[in-house]
Each structure stands twice: as C-alpha cells, then as structure tokens.
C-alpha cells in the first residue's frame, strides 16, 4: 500500500529513493501473538465455566450471561486485532484509532473476568492478568504508531 502511494505522490526524480516503512514490527508481533493467546484464553475460560457450572451453585441465568459476555469479548477482540493489524500495516491512523477505542471494552471484559464475575478462580486471575498486560502493551504501541503516522502524513 505504502509503496504504491509513494509512487503516486512522489515525482519521477525521486524514484529509487529508500522507502521508509513506518509500520511497527513489535506492534505487529504483539498483535499476532495476542491473537493466538486469546484463542487459548477463550478455550481455557470455556473449560473453566464448564468446571464452575458443574461444581458451584449459580443463581438462575447468571452462568449463561457470563458465558455470553465472554463470547462478546471474543468478538470485540477479533475486531480489535483485525483493525489494529490492518491499520498498522497500511500506515493509516483510522484503523489504529478504532482498535484503541475497541480496546476499552476489551479491557473492561478482562477486568470483569479478573474481578467482577461470580466465582474468580486462580487460573482466571493469571490468564486475565496476562491478557491485560497484552492489552496495555498494545495500547502503548498503538499510540506510538499513531504519532509516527501522523508526523509523516503530508497534510
């Protein structure tokens, strides 16, 4: 994307100049790894909910609501990682901003699993803490890449 844009914008004299890539590699690695980690997180959470549903007493409808919330969190997470990775690779600010906005409900969902659900197991705490640290790191790298893209934009 950036290569074609540069070819359109720059006059022919500048052909052969070194193309600066502003997409952040650490951000992209984090997003790729976080996608896989969230898959593990989702499977572990579902298995933990199965365990909790089998052994612990729940009020009517609470377990179903919590499981649905975890699935909504999965949908938000898929969208967030998609927008962040596309925004980073195409060097567009909009995608990264959308992913940062989506990371607010993602952080709230992780905090829900960490603190606010009916029964918090130790495994829940560890898994949600790792997910929260991923989210925080991606927030930092997202803001850094927004600054980098905004500086380089011609307007």
């Amino acid at each position: 994307m950036s290569v074609t844009m540069a070819a359109e914008n720059t006059p022919r004299v500048n052909r052969g100049q070194v193309q600066v890539i502003r997409s952040s590699l650490p951000y992209q690695i984090l997003l790729y790894i976080n996608g896989w980690y969230f898959a593990l997180f989702l499977i572990c959470e579902i298995l933990l909910f199965v365990y909790k549903g089998e052994t612990l007493p729940y009020a009517y409808g609470v377990l179903a609501a919590e499981v649905i919330l975890v699935f909504i969190l999965a949908g938000i997470e898929v969208l967030r990682i998609f927008f962040a990775s596309k925004g980073n690779l195409t060097e567009r600010i909009l995608g990264v901003i959308v992913s940062i906005l989506l990371s607010i409900p993602a952080i709230l969902g992780a905090i829900f699993i960490l603190l606010w659900q009916t029964y918090v197991l130790r495994a829940d705490v560890i898994l949600a803490a790792i997910q929260l640290s991923f989210l925080g790191l991606e927030l930092i790298f997202g803001i850094i890449s927004i600054i980098t893209f905004a500086r380089s934009s011609p307007s």
């Binding site: 790729y32 790894i33 896989w36 130790r122 495994a123």
Partner: peptide
C-alpha cells in the same frame, strides 16, 4: 512460533499457579 509461545504461556501459568497454592 505460536505453538512455542502457547506452550511457554501454559508453563508460566501453571508455575504461577503452583507458587500460589
């Protein structure tokens, strides 16, 4: 790459779990 990361995370999680209980 993802397989290595996931097995490492699983090991870390279970180590913290044992440290806890």
């Amino acid at each position: 790459v993802p397989a290595r990361f996931l097995t490492m995370v699983a090991h870390i999680v279970i180590l913290i779990f044992i440290l806890w209980s």
